[in-house]
Design a protein around this nucleic acid. Structure first.
Lengths: 206, 206
DNA sequence: GGAGTGCGTTAACGCTCATTAACACGTCAG
DNA sequence: CTGACGTGTTAATGAGCGTTAACGCACTCC
């Protein structure tokens, strides 16, 4: 875990605020003046840091997908050697939940504004996402060997939907606290996978 | 079940195409000319049928929320009298899955473009959504009595996220067929609720 | 001390796009 | 026959917005 002590650079401030605004009102729904105002400069000043509005979105989405994937790879490598597959899956789930709870705006952007990207960027993001999914699918199939690959892939996407539902959970007041929420999400994800796996096993055995 | 044999009216064509386009590229991402072209008339001709672009979105969102809620109420009334709570929950899940599989574009719109509405419309949609959630929460708590209300509400939102993930499942080719997909989603939803409920019961007993 | 550079500013351009105006043409009641 | 009405059309309007131009002002480094 690398912790930073230095102040966030201007670029980072901009990206953070842009992410929040894009998530709240959509890419087309927020103007450059608004983004500028959110970091204390006005409108066209952003062009000293980014080539354009599109470039901000691109950097956000590529960054998200990349961090998700590298984090998952690291977790598989760390837990994969010694532990049983279920521990690896637990680690993946935990990582995704951390991300969903800590970076809600990015989660929202992730599956909402992908088509606004240039072809090359979109291809890159899609590729990163696909690798992330495949990594999960492998682990899930080790935990639930009976599950055929298409079903496993569907199950993974569905669990992502479950975990990514955090933006819809109450506006930070009604939640039972971060720890409890994470715990609940984790249990539900495991339960969902287990149900999918049991169905396949029942079918295979019966 | 009311089946219609008469041809769809122009208004309905427009709404259907608008829903598809809004879901694909976002409310701001699609122009009125495009919507018109999709039904064979061009641009401003839409204004003979709707007061404006906003009005189409409003009618779509209010319609979705309303149909979801009335459908759920009907299911609770039908299955609620005689059967055990679990059967009611099964019926709710089934209804939501039907909706998610049959009206994918609407599902996408439902939680993506709500803030584009006039205040009054948004309030109405939110109220309908809230009632729908509360109805689920009640049933879930009957099936899993140990589950505290906040946790049950979070669980319901999360299962919605799971069920609404259908737009992300393969582009209609890689899916194992509608029946199998519905079955898988149903099992996973039940599994997720069960896991949430077991956690609470374990806590209460232990 | 002056050229270069980083980071802002405000004003202007140009394009997209929702909406409105003005007009056209069927159908159908009286 | 004829007006009203429903349903289109194309042209014009006007606002919003991303982007670029032109300029200002610290700093820093020879």
């Amino acid at each position: 875990m690398v912790t930073r002590t230095d102040a966030p650079t201007r670029r980072e401030q901009i990206l953070k605020e842009a992410a929040r605004l894009f998530a709240e009102r959509g890419f087309h729904g927020v103007g450059v003046d608004e983004i500028g105002a959110a970091v204390g400069i006005s409108g066209p000043g952003l062009y000293r840091h980014f080539a354009g509005k599109d470039a901000m979105l691109a950097e956000l989405l590529v960054g998200i997908s990349g961090r998700l994937l590298t984090g998952a790879k690291r977790r598989v490598a760390e837990a994969g050697g010694t532990a049983r597959p279920e521990a690896v899956l637990d680690s993946l789930i935990e990582g995704h939940i951390d991300f969903a709870l800590d970076d809600r705006p990015l989660i929202t952007l992730h599956d909402r504004e992908l088509d606004r990207l240039r072809d090359s960027d979109r291809k890159l993001v899609r590729q990163l996402q696909r690798q992330y999914v495949e990594l999960w699918v492998e682990v899930v199939r080790q935990v639930h060997p009976g599950l055929p690959e298409p079903a496993a892939r569907s199950a993974v996407h569905s669990v992502f939907g479950l975990l990514n539902s955090t933006p819809h959970l109450g506006r930070r007041g009604s939640l039972p606290g971060r720890g409890a929420t994470a715990e609940l999400l984790h249990r539900m994800a495991k339960g969902a996978f287990a149900a999918a796996g049991e169905a396949a096993e029942t079918l295979a055995v019966g």
